[in-house]
Amino acid sequence: MSLELVATILGGLTIGSALMVVISKHPVRSVLFLVLTFFLISSNYILMNAQFLAIVNIIVYAGAIMVLFLFVLMLLNLSKDNEPKSPFYIKIAAVTAGGVLLTVLIAALKDGITVGATSTVDGSSEGLVQNLGHLLFTKYVLPFEISSVLFIAAMVGAVLLAKREKQLID
């Protein structure tokens, strides 16, 4: 089986499950299809020799973020009946706007790449942990440290927002 066929099948499955995220009426089904989409995107990463990112994608997205979504969904106790629906003309307008966006982006990007593929000297090892870690702690060490400040800000913000305010209850 050629690599081209594998890439085409994976791409089609990714688009299909991403469509199901939007189409599904039940929120839990949407979350599960999004998990499937993340796994398919991870398999695309493996196909492109980004092995470490594929694992990190599964751990962070499918493992942490989607479990958080699922947890909040179970907490809110939503069902198919009280799912808010938008009117039909908004759906038509949204699909038209999305289609126009897709057409413009593809038309703008399709012929933009005129440079051929660059093969690495040591044969596709740029996605492995050693190379990425070296780059992260030399060239990109300042953004790496700043992202920890972002995490602390997000953590403090989440705790402050989700904390029940006592004076409002009384």
Binding site: N49, Y61, I65, L68, T118, G127, F151, A154, A158
Partner: peptide
């Protein structure tokens, strides 16, 4: 990143994941 044989794009993906995790926690708590 794979096409041009440079790992810089994959580092950017790391930072996008960091921002996405922070955004998801704050958005869900709101």
């Amino acid at each position: 990143s794979t096409y041009f044989g440079k790992a810089d794009g994959q580092i950017f993906v790391f930072f996008i994941m960091v921002v996405a995790a922070a955004e998801a926690t704050v958005g869900l708590s709101i």
